[in-house]
Design a protein around this nucleic acid. Structure first.
Lengths: 164, 164
DNA sequence: CACAAACTTCACGTACACGTAAAGTTCCTG
DNA sequence: CAGGAACTTTACGTGTACGTGAAGTTTGTG
């Protein structure tokens, strides 16, 4: 191959991903990523897969609001799944493949369960808020009708029908 | 009224709600609830609405994973809505009622927006996991078919049905 | 009414998720 | 190859969300 893997340094990666260099080192310290590579000196060097991993970490942190502990577990499952995929394709044994696939199914199911729970709880709250919104919107509609209808008529006007 | 409000003390409430007394005092310190009442000495005393509020706080913390900062804002909105409801019914002015209702609508909409965002992000993750699940389940199905089909057929055996 | 349980207010301790300053090393550029 | 930018490790600081005593007060029960 003539293509050199363009290894990048921490601040460069940090800027792209939207994390601080400190946070990246912290995640490394916490075991969320492996040192990637080191330069002749000892600068950390990152490749594209590292960048993707860091983007995933940032998404889990900022978008989903998971703690680093949660992220650790989620990534462990992902990593395990990736390794399983490799092992799956490297073995010829169908029963071994079945075992690996079943293990993967368990992990994915656990992940789905976690997400389902979080979503369901948030949806209960959302339903509650939506119901409140509907009631308030109804009130506004009625008030607007009353004000634009007989509203200006302090001098004895017939009451207008209020639309549901 | 002959019914005395049964005011309860902190550990009692803490046990029921599933928080520690320390946490309850902390939330008070953070302004999430007002002192409720105090005994002749200076013990905190809680009524049913306090208990409900603490349960709401706990739900937001444990179920939805909101930070105390988030909870502060959510409860502020709720409190404001409650006060608005009272003010709404106490005024006769239709334009004042309209103003209050529109303010309430804004608050509810903000809350809905927050929840929508969180849910949407989690659903993207869920969709991803579900797709993976589908692929893995497909693999398992095929492997099971291969194993129970021609797999055992080294000795020429009919494939047994696998119950779902 | 004595006394233990439960409560009170400090006040320091802890885990998490980093920020930040210090002091030295490595890398790139002119 | 000189020098500054970027990096390294080390280490202490910060805000959040509480936990854990300590020392004194209040309250319910024998």
């Amino acid at each position: 191959m003539l293509e050199e893997a363009p290894l990048r340094r921490i601040q460069d990666v940090a800027d792209e991903v939207g994390l601080t260099a400190r946070a990246i080192r912290y995640y490394e310290e916490m075991g969320l990523l492996t040192p990637a590579a080191r330069s002749g000196g000892s600068h950390r060097l990152y490749d594209e897969s590292d960048v993707e991993r860091l983007q995933a970490i940032r998404g889990l942190r900022d978008d989903a609001g998971f703690s680093v502990g949660d992220i650790t577990r989620l990534l462990e499952d992902s990593d395990h799944l990736a390794r399983s995929r490799a092992a799956f394709h490297e073995t010829q044994s169908r029963s071994e493949r079945l075992r690996i696939a079943r293990d993967g199914l368990g992990r994915v199911d656990r992940r789905i369960g976690l997400l389902d729970e979080k979503i369901e709880r948030l949806q209960v709250m959302l339903a509650d808020a939506s119901a409140r919104r509907t009631r308030i919107a109804g009130k506004i509609d009625r008030l607007e009708a009353e004000l634009s209808g007989p509203g200006a008529a302090t001098a004895g006007r017939a009451p207008a029908e209020v639309p549901a």
